[in-house]
Simulated scan of single mutants.
Amino acid sequence: MQPNECVSFLVISDGKILLEKRSELREVDPGTINIPGGHIENDETQSQALYRELSEELGIVPITYHFLCSLYHPTSELQLIHYYVVTSWEGEAQPFEAEDISWYSLAEAPVGINVDKVALSEFKRVSGSLGIAL
């Protein structure tokens, strides 16, 4: 089975992470609180998808970002999610595609899917090497 590639973004500011609450009507992971992201479109690079998805999902443009890791997420489709950490951006984040967005402390971020929990754990492990203080 060929995985569908996606990008997800840990938007980080002052020791907090921006998470989304997915609509109950979504086919994949309905109603969960998770790290925002979306599918990479045909002939699109990960970086291009990151810019497009940040704009579509939150209405922001990344200024500083770092690749974090890639993880598989088996849902109704097999997804390969490429996680990025976004530490500076232009614009004010708004929930364009999610039911709601909220800031959470990194220590208590209530992510609802296992793959996001692994990505968040990896971020905490390597944040110092990325030059990000927790």
Rank of each mutant, 00 (worst) to 15 (best):
M1D: 11
M1N: 05
P3W: 04
P3M: 03
N4D: 06
V7D: 07
V7Q: 08
F9I: 03
I12E: 04
G15E: 12
K16M: 13
K16V: 08
L19H: 07
K21F: 10
K21C: 11
R22Q: 13
R22D: 10
S23P: 04
S23Q: 14
E24V: 15
L25I: 11
E27P: 01
V28I: 12
V28F: 00
D29P: 01
D29L: 03
P30T: 01
G31V: 09
T32V: 06
I33S: 01
I33M: 02
N34T: 12
I35L: 07
I35A: 06
G37P: 09
I40L: 03
E41S: 02
D43E: 15
S47R: 14
S47I: 14
Q48C: 05
Q48T: 13
Q48V: 11
L50N: 08
L54H: 04
L54W: 08
I60W: 02
P62Q: 06
I63Q: 09
T64V: 07
T64Y: 03
Y65S: 05
H66C: 08
H66S: 12
C69A: 12
Y72Q: 00
P74M: 00
S76M: 09
E77T: 08
E77F: 03
L78G: 00
I81C: 00
I81Q: 01
I81S: 00
H82C: 03
Y83G: 06
Y84L: 11
W89Y: 09
E90H: 07
E92S: 09
A93C: 04
Q94C: 08
Q94T: 14
P95T: 07
P95F: 11
A98K: 05
E99Y: 14
I101T: 07
I101C: 07
W103G: 04
W103C: 07
Y104G: 13
L106D: 13
A107T: 15
V111G: 04
V111D: 02
G112W: 11
I113S: 01
I113T: 03
I113L: 05
N114A: 10
D116W: 00
V118E: 04
V118P: 01
A119R: 02
L120H: 06
E122K: 11
V126Y: 04
S127V: 13
L130N: 11
